[in-house]
Design a binder for these strands. Structure first.
Lengths: 212, 212, 212, 212
DNA sequence: TATGAATGAGTATTCATTCAT
DNA sequence: TATGAATGAATACTCATTCAT
């Protein structure tokens, strides 16, 4: 009779899952449109066609639980595209290009998702532990990318550089392009994806390395 | 008498300007400490030692006007450091390194400023009515950096790349490092500044260029 | 089929009665634990192992109907103890002592009941529409005790006093001890029961009486 | 710009004190009419003629702060009457009578106050520390009365009895009469005050004492 | 200028109750 | 009977803004 918390989605009925998904979707669109700080339960409820905010509270025990699911949903969607594209690439260099370009592809395919993600991630207090229950860490994290770069370097496909710094730079380049796109709207996403891939293809080349 | 809007600071008395600066300073510190969504007029007033939030409303017609000035203040401070450092560098390549490293220096020297900037920029919607009056464009903009890169390429100091894409990547790398730093706290800022400069020094080298 | 109201328990099936009793029990425990204002249908349902608050609404037409039954249940339990103990006493004086001490015994044996009763009785307004349907009268009433004292006086076992005033005093002494006990927790209930009995044994003595 | 907490009433302006008193008064009346659990900020605001509940929050930082002041106000009013009447009495026995009768006088003179007090005291969870900040202890407490009875016994004016038990009984008799009065309304308060005083005059007589 | 009182819309969350299944 | 989804009003509390002084 109360909203469950955590990730035991199996325990939820089909109807519950559908409603939750509907609310999450409305939340994403709302955040994308009016920004995270201006996103209230009533706006979400209105967009979702719910009769009252009570319906949201019925399905999500607390506000952070809703936004945790929102972030999770977006991250899963982005991860799916990226993982698929990287798997089909043979070399580390090709995988890096696949990573970068698939991120741009996601931006193009799910503009609201990317926009919402940026809003939430930076809108949420970083040290605020009550917010998303560690999920904000997952969003900011470049751990996976760092490891990937280290592996590639170990395999001799990349040059000399600090994996973490490079990962932060790559991720930052992608995210900042997203911000530019949110602002401008009419950028050629695919082309810029290729260009960014070019840039980091260049500075990760074997043989090349920090010279000072 | 009503609060003025915009940039006609000349019309303001010395006392007015001092009060505004005091409020802006308190706003920056408050945002840095509690985050943009938790920043209220009363918290700012408290920190500024004002007896009433009415004082803020008296000096700033609307909430966005205050935060526009906040952003302006921060941007000016950051721009000062960067411009000075770049001026003393002789070559375009050296200037680029100066640009990157001075940005990291700003992060180290004014943590509250950088933190507040990140909070506000993403806390405020980009194209809505309550926004910062064109200022968010200035925040996101990489026009200056783009032009600089183009000049450098024309001068033959840089390789083949799209100036805008490169500018977005550089700016994104810096900003993402800032985010990581806000999250982690104990990163070696100067070292990472040098490493990021190394990375982009590498991929802007003359002779090098996009290969596909 | 709709939930019945009032006292026609005969019309209810065995299952219905069992469910009602189960809910009433859960309500008592809940009130005793978290207090009347914090007692909600969902908390009661949870404690009763019901899957939905709808189940409560199904068995009790309105919230006051549930709490009327709660009060009734408690009153009946208290009345049982008191009546039994009084019956075994021979004289009116002994019966009065039995009444007082058995009330303290009830407090000791059913702390949750007494606690819940106090919470509910003062939590529910006396003359409003959402009340307990005359039951609050039964709770407050000292009619039975008044009559008993009058009979005792007629039998010559008690002294000169106003029966109603004495009844109110006796009942008040007991109830206030209960309040103190709820506050303190570690009072010697049986001992205080005897002492209160002593006090009223003293001032109901024949020969003694109001002197002004 | 925020409501002050605690008891530093000196720090408040005249207007603030007046508003607070007005709100407290409205709160008392509201509690007396609809009961403590049904008393909400909006009902109080309505009765006080305030435009919104925000006005209450402006003057009282938190709900318990308001009700603490309510209880304080009532206790002060009751204490004034009682203290005055007791001071003019010469002997301990006379003082006890004064205590009892002045309590009844208070009931007669301030029916809303007494009613509200009963509602709040028993409506509030006893162990709930967040409620009135220890004030509920003051309300329930019979320490003063207990001490007074002990002194009187030491002075030889009273008989043998446990001071605490007697104090609880006296206070309980008074409070229960109040409850009866809230229910009935047309009791002769002064007369019952005298009768209750008679009762306890009787059982506190020197020479008399517990006999078992 | 500056104060502080006031406003009214806003927030998330809880609640008893209803109802289709 | 029983479930759980849904409703809509209610809760205390916060906020930017206004305004008389």
């Amino acid at each position: 009779m109360k909203a469950k918390d955590g990730d035991d989605q199996d325990a939820r009925t089909f109807t519950q899952q559908a409603r939750r998904a509907q609310i999450v979707q409305a939340a994403i669109e709302t955040v994308a449109e009016v920004g995270y700080p201006n996103t209230s339960f009533s706006k979400i409820a209105q967009r979702a066609g719910l009769s009252s905010t009570g319906m949201i509270s019925y399905h999500f025990a607390r506000k952070p639980e809703l936004f945790a699911e929102v972030v999770n949903t977006i991250l899963r969607a982005a991860g799916d595209i990226t993982a698929t594209r990287m798997r089909t690439a043979a070399t580390y260099r090709a995988k890096l290009r696949a990573y970068i370009e698939s991120n741009f592809e996601f931006i193009a395919r799910h503009p609201a998702y990317t926009q919402a993600l940026v809003e939430i991630v930076t809108g949420i207090r970083f040290r605020d532990t009550t917010s998303l229950g560690g999920l904000e860490k997952a969003v900011v994290s470049v751990d996976g990318l760092t490891d990937f770069l280290s592996e590639g370097r170990a395999a001799g496909e990349f040059g000399r550089f600090d994996s973490f710094t490079m990962a932060v730079s790559i991720r930052g380049a992608i995210d900042n392009f997203l911000r530019q796109h949110m602002f401008d709207g009419d950028l050629d996403i695919a082309r810029h994806g290729r260009e960014v891939a070019d840039i980091f293809d260049l500075c990760t080349r074997p043989g090349a390395g920090a010279s000072n």
